[in-house]
Write a protein that binds this DNA or RNA. Sequence first.
DNA 1: GATGAATGAGCCTTCATTCAT
DNA 2: AATGAATGAAGGCTCATTCAT
Lengths: 205, 205, 205, 205
Amino acid sequence: MPKVGMDKVRKPQLIKAVMQVVDEVGFHSASVALIGRTANVSPGIINHYFGGKDGLIEATMRSVLQALSLSVRRELAQTADEDIVGRLQAIVRGNFDPHQLDSSVVKTWLAFWAYAMHHPVLFRLQHVNEKRLLSHLRRELKRVLPTERADFVAKGIAALIDGIWLRGALNPEGIDSDLALAIITDYLERQLPAELFDLHQRLSA
Amino acid sequence: MPKVGMDKVRKPQLIKAVMQVVDEVGFHSASVALIGRTANVSPGIINHYFGGKDGLIEATMRSVLQALSLSVRRELAQTADEDIVGRLQAIVRGNFDPHQLDSSVVKTWLAFWAYAMHHPVLFRLQHVNEKRLLSHLRRELKRVLPTERADFVAKGIAALIDGIWLRGALNPEGIDSDLALAIITDYLERQLPAELFDLHQRLSA
Amino acid sequence: MPKVGMDKVRKPQLIKAVMQVVDEVGFHSASVALIGRTANVSPGIINHYFGGKDGLIEATMRSVLQALSLSVRRELAQTADEDIVGRLQAIVRGNFDPHQLDSSVVKTWLAFWAYAMHHPVLFRLQHVNEKRLLSHLRRELKRVLPTERADFVAKGIAALIDGIWLRGALNPEGIDSDLALAIITDYLERQLPAELFDLHQRLSA
Amino acid sequence: MPKVGMDKVRKPQLIKAVMQVVDEVGFHSASVALIGRTANVSPGIINHYFGGKDGLIEATMRSVLQALSLSVRRELAQTADEDIVGRLQAIVRGNFDPHQLDSSVVKTWLAFWAYAMHHPVLFRLQHVNEKRLLSHLRRELKRVLPTERADFVAKGIAALIDGIWLRGALNPEGIDSDLALAIITDYLERQLPAELFDLHQRLSA
DNA sequence: GATGAATGAGCCTTCATTCAT
DNA sequence: AATGAATGAAGGCTCATTCAT
């Protein structure tokens, strides 16, 4: 009697194990045997569900990307459409979601970037993700800035998000999401009309 | 007597080969056999000069870090001490030196970050490097901003530098150093007194 | 489900292959590749079962030691407790058991000794073995000789056993176990009271 | 101006280094690089003087064999021809010469035996050595015992010599040459006419 | 669906040997 | 005579993958 729907159980279980192993020993030491042991399954099963190690790696990367995308969309969904400052901050908060700051997720991201450089599928995935952040930011900024300026500021905010994230990831003290929000809000205050902040104040109250 | 002083020739030759291989096939496929072949030497020589693959990797990382440090110092040396804006821009230019934007260097940096997470020696090296950027920025900013504010702005600039660099590295179109300078100069203009820019104008003329 | 209980099959199979290879090409040429080929398994399996070549070597040495110990105990078990001469001869016969004279076993012993000098674990194993022979001999001799004399004679018999064995191992004509028994029995006749031999005669009849 | 007669200096120097290295790290870890370093010469020189590692090993073995032969001959030369017991003891003393009990010599012997099993040249050398001991013993014994008996006793003495030597080599407490002489003298007393010992007493006085 | 024994290619490393100097 | 840089084959080991159960 074969258990049905084991996909739903095994796949996330293994993806989580990959991140845990990457956290503990690094991507370069993440063997199928170790991942299997961490997930309490046999190494052979990875082939069964993912068609090989590469499939598992790819699925893990997709999972990380989706989690980020979900975080941002969840934050945006909770913010009024008129509150442009709030929406920009929501995008920032989504990128600094506690889950994204988890050690295993952070290390998986770092490994992901290095790995993606030589893996067309992952590279494209990552590029889509990168453009999505920019597109989210631009959408809001265009409502209050000329297109060209909106592009410019969007790139600034995106750089601040990724830069703060990266520097925190490489720092023993970790990522300080409050400081991230403070730096980026300060940036916004100097780029956007003051009225938007008054509006934001009123809507948040 | 055998050839002497080959250290000076072989070590840079092998370090360069590492970066070339990382560029071509990725860090995870950079075997000593391939590195040796790329450098036109036998694989065994790596042990002779670096005591093993790890020694070569470490030496490569140190080389990359030193090159960056040198770029920044070179740019700073060419800028007048009174020209605070110019000095901040020099730091930015140093970080976006053409050599740092070379594909093989970019990929080595990415690999370096992921690898350093699980390699205490490299982690410390990388951390020193990270703090140095902040310290360079802070030194200039403190001359015109209150300490606390200088710290805050230094973190912003550092984040912009690393963020723009990272996003460019992950982008098929590469890193646009002119745009980087524009974004960061724009940031500075909104953080620093206008007189500093007038002074900069005069000194650069 | 995969085949279970292969330990019981593979381990002795590989240990036997080690001895065969040592016999054929010598300890210094016994590579895991050759051992694997001899056992008709892949070289990787040695890691699976023994954790590495050293583990296999160690297991082989233990096996050789245990076989010797077993031979002696088997011979002793077949001899009446009162028949002291018979028991001493049983110990000798155990040491010259046909299995111990097999070319592959002989060469493994020789390699073992040289190797054990620089391998603490094996050295201790070998030392325990060496003391056990002495202890077996002493136990019987003390029943008919003063303690000090029993010690002295035990050392003589042990030396004769090992000396005859060694000289036979290094001799193209091999080990002559009948001669061994004759030489040692002659030694005993000159060290022990004649009545013991009369008793032995009667009990053997 | 090439130095002449360096053979006389370099060869013994390297042979000694082999034994020292075998003592320190074991035969299986005695690389030419390590031997060269120990002898304070470059690794390449081994080829120059011995035509390769094997030549050096072979020369070392020959050296060990010759030293033993010399020890025995030296002891015999100091003993009166009529003193048969004394001459037999001289042979024993030669075999337990302090130089033969040196740790590096002991370990070289052990390695030698294991290695000789698969090296025809060394095997023959070692066999000649083995026969020489027997022949020395037999020559003396035949003067007082029937041929067949002399053969038998010679084998007993040879076995005692090698057995005591081997057991001492494998024992952390080392080889006790006084005990060796005591055990073998005891053996002789029970195999040879008492008058020979009286004669020995008188001649030694 | 799941196991883990088994494979064999590929890795890093060691090492005897060669050779330009 | 002597060096030691350089080679490249061979070693032990790791690991993704396969497959009988």
